[in-house]
């Protein structure tokens, strides 16, 4: 029984990261109607950035966020300017399909480049406090993963505040709701797109840092994280960042339970099955409004 409880605790801890990973995807999809299947590769890049910041600059792994987040935002601006900015000019159906294809091409390129530059080896960040564990009621909670969960929650909460209170946050939400109406009220829709995409990439970078600190990073984690983020977005729907965070934790717990029920290797399968079932049951449903 306590083994199961332990699994659930670990599921909650990684679930926070699923939520953070999904928040970026959800923001970009909700605002730009662009399904960026390279989102997981952006997470992978963030993870490597953190790894090198620690290995070469001797930074604290969590402290590397100060470096990685601005870099990710910049990457987002560049990617938008070079690729996705062209796609959003098309009508909605073409936009969805072309952005999917471009994201797919980008994922291939980033994955192959990462293998070339950093080899296919798995890497994780080793910290002096990495092994520290808090024991609560007989359940052990790794400190690093707990900190990651707290940071993920703080970032999501901050994002929610930005979207509801900041001028441009409101503009982004208005654009997501109806870009034509937003344009008519004088909102610079293009800039809202750019901001939302950069923020989505920044969220991916943040998630990447936390992944490489608490878990590990390798060039091939991209597809895995894209799928996790997609599953959470389908579960949680668009619109509420807190909802996305909760959806991530739900997925983490569901995986933990299924690993206990069917054995470890099937934990990936259960999330995907939920995903396909929800998609088929509500083809427009949970994604749309």
């Amino acid at each position: 029984m306590s083994a199961l409880a332990q699994q659930i605790v670990l599921g909650i801890l990684i679930g926070g990261l699923y939520g953070l990973a999904a928040a970026g995807l959800s923001l970009v999809f909700g605002v730009l109607k662009v399904l960026n299947v390279a989102h997981g590769e952006l997470i992978m890049l963030g993870g490597y950035a953190a790894f090198w910041a620690v290995a070469l600059l001797g930074m604290d792994p969590f402290g590397s966020l100060v470096l990685v987040v601005p870099l990710s935002l910049l990457t987002g601006v560049v990617l938008y300017g070079a690729l996705f900015g062209f796609v959003v000019r098309a009508n909605e159906e073409t936009r969805e399909k072309n952005s999917l294809l471009i994201g797919f091409g980008l994922a291939l390129v980033l994955h192959a480049l990462a293998v070339r530059l950093w080899t296919a080896d798995e890497r994780s960040i080793v910290t002096p406090y990495g092994g520290a564990v808090i024991t609560v009621a007989g359940l052990s909670v790794p400190v690093v993963r707990l900190l990651s969960l707290v940071i993920a929650f703080a970032v999501i909460g901050g994002l929610q505040l930005l979207l509801t209170h900041w001028r441009w946050g409101k503009a982004i939400r208005a654009t997501a709701e109806d870009w034509q109406a937003a344009l008519l009220t004088g909102i610079d829709v293009r800039r809202a797109y750019l901001l939302a995409f950069a923020m989505g990439t920044g969220l991916a970078g943040t998630a990447g840092v936390l992944v490489s600190v608490g878990y590990s990073v390798s060039p091939s984690i991209g597809l895995e994280w894209t799928l996790k983020a997609l599953i959470v977005v389908v579960l949680a729907g668009l619109g509420s960042m807190i909802g996305t965070f909760v959806g991530g934790i739900l997925l983490g717990v569901a995986e933990a339970l299924s690993a206990a029920a069917f054995g470890g290797p099937y934990r990936e399968v259960v999330g995907l099955v939920i995903f396909v079932v929800v998609l088929c049951a509500r083809p427009r449903g949970l994604f749309g409004r």
Binding site: K97, L100, L223, L227, Y266, V276, L279, P283
Partner: peptide, 25 residues
């Protein structure tokens, strides 16, 4: 096929991964 556009693509992507993981196990 009730899913259109991007939904069909990501649905089939998930399906392929389900089969691959299961067969590998």
């Amino acid at each position: 096929f009730r899913l259109r556009g991007a939904y069909f693509a990501v649905g089939t992507l998930a399906l392929g991964e389900i089969l691959r993981t299961t067969v590998a196990n």
